[in-house]
Design a protein around this nucleic acid. Structure first.
Lengths: 222, 222
DNA sequence: GTCTATAGATTGATAGAC
DNA sequence: GTCTATCAATCTATAGAC
């Protein structure tokens, strides 16, 4: 079949992507060299540039390969909630919105064997010093996050715009940190939380964050 | 006076530290070269290694210079709360504990002119891919965080150990993200929160996190 | 303490044979 | 598509004059 070449290429590309994901998670983008990646992936050094053009393009593909499904699932979840809310004529529930946004990141990275490397990579998105790379994440994250903001506004009509946006960024911060913790076994500090199933972590996150979102606005203290 | 040399040295060292802090915040540790740093700080390239020995040692000093006062203030705040609680024979308040831990990071970085670069650096602590650097942060953060854990246990005796530690890590995540947002004017995503005074951000953080810490434990759902 | 000059290693990317 | 060989740039660190 004509697939012979395609399969061969596909295997090599996939092997490079998988190994790059692992090394990027372990050592960061800048600290991972093409030569080390080629060695670990059992491919020739020149093959990496042949298949991806440049290191920057490789980074972009490693990220978008996993983020795209996560983002689609987030949008689908949020839109389903939006439709239900419209049909029932009442605002969506805070817990439902948070779970709709949070869960896909954990579920869709669960398939990979061993450590969930992409959780570590995505958990570093907002800390990435390289603006080009940071923008890759932002471009993917933006639509679903904006929809989350809009729906959360319906769920919490009494909250001021500024407070709502600060709180949703606290959500992003807690989520990012939890993703890094779940993706790697390295302890970031003493007294790290115990290893837990994905569902347990998501439930802890949602319970904590939903209560925080619903806290009384303290604007009157100013 | 014999201070002439000392002052000269001190000026150079301080100028290097200040410029390094800014560049590390803007571009990360790995992406900041000694030659660029020397150029921006108006010192000779060899002077950097003369004063600090190596790049790694410079990184360590940039971090510890700011973290040490923050850590001391955190410990002092928490110990004061502990004493008051002991004297009054009742557990400390969640809000007080969180504010005691959170506030020093924002207050003690406020003195620097312009952008608060160290907030960006410290906000990336748990995302740092280089284990050596990550351990510098952890070594400094550990004592105050452990004390926070212990006191929070007294404030929330009904919470299981696992849930308490997960929630305190959600606190660390939200705090880190807020620090990055406050330290830099770059928008990490659309719908970023508005620029606010330090005190306002701290109050938003404490209100959100204290309510989350106090959420009912959902362990019975398992 | 500050400078010039440079060693020594590593990097991303490419040219060209097969 | 895969290989070897190599280029050009960049980096940290140091040696040695002043």
């Amino acid at each position: 079949m004509a697939d012979t070449h395609k399969t061969k290429q596909s295997d090599t590309k996939t092997r490079i992507l998988d190994e790059a994901e692992k090394l990027f998670a372990q050592n960061g983008f800048k600290n991972t060299s093409i030569s080390l990646l080629a060695r670990k992936a059992h491919v020739n050094q020149a093959a990496v540039n042949y298949h991806f053009g440049s290191k920057g393009a490789l980074v972009e593909q490693v990220i978008s390969r996993r983020i795209s499904p996560i983002d689609r699932q987030r949008m689908a979840n949020l839109q389903a909630i939006e439709e239900t809310a419209t049909r029932q004529g009442r605002p969506p529930a805070i817990e439902d919105l948070l779970r709709a946004y949070i869960e896909p990141a954990f579920i869709l990275t669960e398939t990979a064997p061993g450590e969930k490397w992409f959780l570590v990579i995505a958990g570093r998105a907002f800390s990435e010093p390289d603006e080009t790379i940071r923008n890759v994440f932002i471009r993917h994250f933006e639509p679903a996050f904006l929809l989350l903001v809009a729906l959360m506004k319906e769920a919490l009509p009494g909250l001021s715009d500024a407070v709502l946006r600060w709180r949703l960024h606290f959500v992003l911060g807690a989520l990012s940190h939890a993703m890094r913790l779940c993706g790697s076994h390295r302890l970031p500090v003493a007294s790290a939380p115990p290893p837990d199933t994905t569902e347990t972590v998501v439930r802890h996150l949602v319970a904590f964050l939903a209560t925080g979102m619903d806290a009384p606005d303290d604007a009157e203290h100013e």
